[in-house]
């Protein structure tokens, strides 16, 4: 098994799985019906992409596990998502801010992955990039609408940006696995996406009348699995309980 490839696929699939699950937590309780539907649809896209990434990860691993096994039967320390996506929903503004910060990264990442030297990765990216282009349009516009909205909505969006700011850096921090895969042309070096990300987000924050905090301290440990935040364990107890309580249960 190509371990770096397997790890890279887990990172891709765990990002979409965990944020997809987080977004799905709004289903039925979003502030307005249109947003409820929009969030549920985005969660659906992200979980669909997860099936492809983790399905390929399972193939690459070659030990007979399925995408479902990887999603439902791994524990916290086996997950390889960045810390940003496991952060709690907070209020609606914080959810939308988290979504925009991830979507913008996700779009740049997928645009590069469409050129991957690994054909199966390029094929999944070509499918997903269309969906994520749409996600960014929406999360960006909503960040601007709420940031440049009322005094209260601006206050909440600023609080969300300040809270989530230290989780941005991890998305661009490259480790030995990233560099091995980047050298082989399988994935982009995450650090190489940072300039485009900063350029895009700077415009959006300005339009949204938001001030990015000073400093570039970044939490880490999610994508390497070294140390997740406490929140991921709570998320997994919800997401995985059925397969844990009734192993092998099927519809």
């Amino acid at each position: 098994m190509n371990n770096a490839l397997f790890e890279s696929l887990l990172r891709l699939g765990d990002n979409t799985l965990v944020i997809g699950h987080r977004v799905s937590e709004w289903c039925g309780v979003a502030p307005v019906l249109e947003e409820d539907i929009a969030l549920a649809n985005m969660a659906l896209d992200l979980i669909g992409q997860t099936q492809m990434w983790l399905g390929l990860a399972a193939d690459v691993e070659g030990e007979g596990r399925s995408a479902d096994d990887l999603a439902m039967l791994r524990d916290v320390w086996d997950f390889r998502n960045v810390l940003l996506v496991e952060q709690p929903n907070g209020d609606f503004g914080q959810t939308i801010m988290r979504q925009y910060l991830f979507d913008q990264f996700h779009l740049l990442q997928l645009q590069h992955l469409t050129q991957s030297t690994e054909d199966r990765i390029a094929a999944i990216a070509q499918k997903a990039v269309k969906e994520v282009t749409y996600h960014v349009d929406r999360s960006r516009d909503t960040v601007v609408a709420l940031g440049d909205g009322t005094e209260e909505s601006n206050r909440r969006m600023q609080a969300a940006l300040t809270k989530l700011w230290p989780y941005i850096g991890e998305m661009f921090a490259a480790d030995a696995i990233d560099l091995e895969m980047a050298t082989a042309g399988v994935i982009p070096d995450p650090a190489s996406l940072r300039a485009d990300y900063d350029a895009a987000t700077r415009v959006v924050f300005a339009d949204a009348v938001l001030t990015p905090p000073a400093g570039d301290f970044a939490h880490g440990g999610g994508k390497t699995g070294f140390r997740h935040s406490e929140h991921l364990g709570h998320l997994l107890t919800q997401m995985q309980w059925l397969q844990r309580a009734y192993p092998g249960a099927r519809w």
Binding site: I37, A38, R138
Partner: peptide, 13 residues
């Protein structure tokens, strides 16, 4: 436009 998403993933409102 009312919403970028509609009753199914393929539709807007």
């Amino acid at each position: 436009k009312i919403s970028q998403f509609g009753s199914t993933p393929c539709k807007a409102h």
